[in-house]
Structures are given as C-alpha cells and as structure tokens.
Design a protein around this nucleic acid. Sequence first.
DNA 1: TGTACATCAGTGAACGCGCGTTCACTGATGTAC
DNA 2: TGTACATCAGTGAACGCGCGTTCACTGATGTAC
Lengths: 208, 208
Amino acid sequence: MKSIPFKDSYHHGDLKKALRFATLNLLQEESYQSISLRKVAKKAGVSQSAPYRHYPNLESLLVDVAIYGFQLLREKLQSIQSKFKKHPLLQFRESGLCYVNFALGHPDLFQIMYGNQISNHALYPELTLAEEASFSVLEDIIRENQKSGNLNSSDVRKTAIAAWTMVHGIALLFLGKQVVFQDSTDRTIKRTTKEMLETLYIGIKYKK
Amino acid sequence: MKSIPFKDSYHHGDLKKALRFATLNLLQEESYQSISLRKVAKKAGVSQSAPYRHYPNLESLLVDVAIYGFQLLREKLQSIQSKFKKHPLLQFRESGLCYVNFALGHPDLFQIMYGNQISNHALYPELTLAEEASFSVLEDIIRENQKSGNLNSSDVRKTAIAAWTMVHGIALLFLGKQVVFQDSTDRTIKRTTKEMLETLYIGIKYKK
DNA sequence: TGTACATCAGTGAACGCGCGTTCACTGATGTAC
DNA sequence: TGTACATCAGTGAACGCGCGTTCACTGATGTAC
C-alpha cells in the first residue's frame, strides 16, 4: 500500500515534487532574488533541514525549477506550432508572442531560467537539454517556413537565434521596466512585439 | 587651501567619488550579485560606516554607479556617431556593435544598469535621464539614416527601440551563456551581431 | 597671527537578521523471518 | 499474521557567516574673534 503523497503524517510522500511547486508558488509571490531554501521549506510545510534529503543545495533546486520552466515553455510553443500547422507564417509570429507572454506571465520563473541565479548552466546536462528542447521548437518552425517557401534563408539555426534574441530582448527590457518601455502596457507590448517580428521577418525574407 | 583628495589622513577629501570607483573596480573582480556596502567601503580603505555620510543605502550607491555606466555608454555611442558622420548606415551598424561590446567589456556594470539590483528605476530621475540620454543617441542615428534616405520608416522611436532590443537581447543571451550562444567566442558574437543588425536593417527598409 | 570652538567626515563596536548547512535525534515504513 | 529490526525521511537546535544599519565617539578642518 503506497502512502498518499501528502503532509498529513511524519513522512511526506513526495517532498521533492512538493518543494519544486512550493518554489514555483513563492516565485509568484516574491522576487526571484529573495528565494531561499528556508522559505521554500516553510512554504512546503516542512522543517528547514528537510530539503537536504532531496537537494544538496539551493542551486540544484533552482535547476529543477528552471527545467520545469523550460518544459512548460516548450509545451506552450508546441501547442502554438500545432495550432497553426497550416500557416507557418502565423506559427512564426505567434510563437514569438507566446515567448513574450510566457515571460510576462511568469517573470520571476523566467529570471530563474535565464538569469544568473544558476551560476553555470553547462554544469547541468538536464538543464541544457531542456533549454535546447524548447529552442528546437523554434528551429522547427523556421524550417517549416522555409519548406513552404515563406523564408528562403538557408541557415535555420542563425535565423532561429535572431528571432529568439529579438523576443528575449523585448521580454527583458519590458520586465526590467527600462526607460524605452516605461509606460508600456501588456497590450502595447504585444503590438510592439508583433511589429518587431514582422520587421525581422521581412528582413530575413529579403536578405541577400 | 584645499586638501588633496586622498586617504592619507583622517579625512578623505572626496570619498563619494572614491566609493563610486571602488564599486566599479569591485565589479571587475566579482559578481554584481555579491556587491555589498561593506566590501565597497573596504575597497575604498575606509570603515564600513563611512559610506553612510554620502549614501543613505546601498541602492543609492548602485544608482550612482549605473548613472556613470549610462554616461560611459553614451560617450561611446557618441564617438561612433561622430566617427562615421558621413555614413549613417555605418553609424547604425557600428553603434549596435558598440552596445554589444560595452556589455561584453563590462558585464557586471551592465547588469547593474539593466538588472534588478535597483528595484525601481523610476524612483531616480537622474538615472532615468541618463538612460534616456544614451538611448537618444541611437534615435539621432536613426533620424540621420532617414534624412540621408537609407531608411524610410516614419517612426524614429519605434525603429530605435527595435534596434536597441535586438542588441540588448544579444548581449544578455551571450552574457548568460545561454545554450544558443554557449560556444560563441567574442569574435563570432560580433559577426553574429553584424548579421542580425543587417537583417533588421533590411526589414526596416522594406517594411510596408 | 593665534586661540576657541563649531562643524562634520570617518571610526569601530555593537545590534539583530536571515541565511546555508550540520548533526544527533525520532518516528514511520517496509521487510525478513 | 505477528514481531524484530533495518532503513531512511523529516526534526529542531545549533553553528558561523556576512550583511545593513545605528550610535556615541574622535580627530581634522575651517572660521569667528
């Protein structure tokens, strides 16, 4: 008889998963900069030393959370991809919008994924794989645009990187409330994103 | 008789400036995340409570440092602007490269300028002004490209924001050692930047 | 020019805080017999 | 099915750390007379 994975007894059941979700919840309440193992443990209703049975330190928990974030992003991108299967051009634009939406919807998770809380991503192969997996959806979309004749750029990867860079820049400048986006609303930011992606798309199309 | 602004006596002379430069030096040695008032004071050769005669708290010191950073960036962009006065198109490309170079050359200062160490930029008018001043150089460059007929986009600000976003995205993805740029060198990043800016330029030129 | 004094920049001890991490422990679970 | 025991997840007290900040102080400077 397996125990029910809830904290109604001395043993928890699935504390590792609970800690991951406690962190995600915390990230919706306060800044990614103020996350600590003690807060996460408290949020999960467990003593401050309990997490050490599952994670050697805070960073490895954050890595776990970041991996979850990349998986979530990947799923969202994939659902865009299949939703606009017949319209590669829309796939392109909507996936860019999806990325920006993701960043605006989960700003602090986004910072864990792309910020410097995790010192060196290359130390965590699983994390790197999750990043690549989410990026590869964008590559697929570019490839489909080429096949259907919308884009003739030969280098899929370069093109994908350019698009990724653009939406990443938008997300970060907006999240940082930088001066250029200081009085942008969610609505204007989406319009701006569409316009920029269109500009970039035309650039890719007509280059060389 | 004015005292010499050096720490050879009980009084310092110009501790405020010294603290700013101590912070800049620290930022070249260690992560922006580990900066503290105590470390800055130590670096300046002064007791940990001395900074409080000049700054109410750590954040206001960082604001000061960020302002310095934006001024430096502005000067670099202006020197590009005047260097290529006769070639607006080169002004465009080289100023983008200059931005990326600045970020790669002063990664931790760059993070202070654009990261979340300063909670709300809007609280500091001087900081906002310095940001706007550096951004306005880019606007000027776009305007000159329009005048000379290289670009026909009517909205200078939008165009400038698109370019800014692009180079900002490059800088941050590269600094974060994200997977897409994981094995890029400084040289390849510059080539990538040039290509992306060219793509964007063509997009702006042919749009609508 | 010399002396008294106000001003104020810098000192260093002290405070409380939250943090990561450790450690001997305790209580629940699952298994061998 | 029942009992003894190994295993291991979670506990809570304790540690040392660096931090921001305060406070009564001290020493240098510049000014009034």
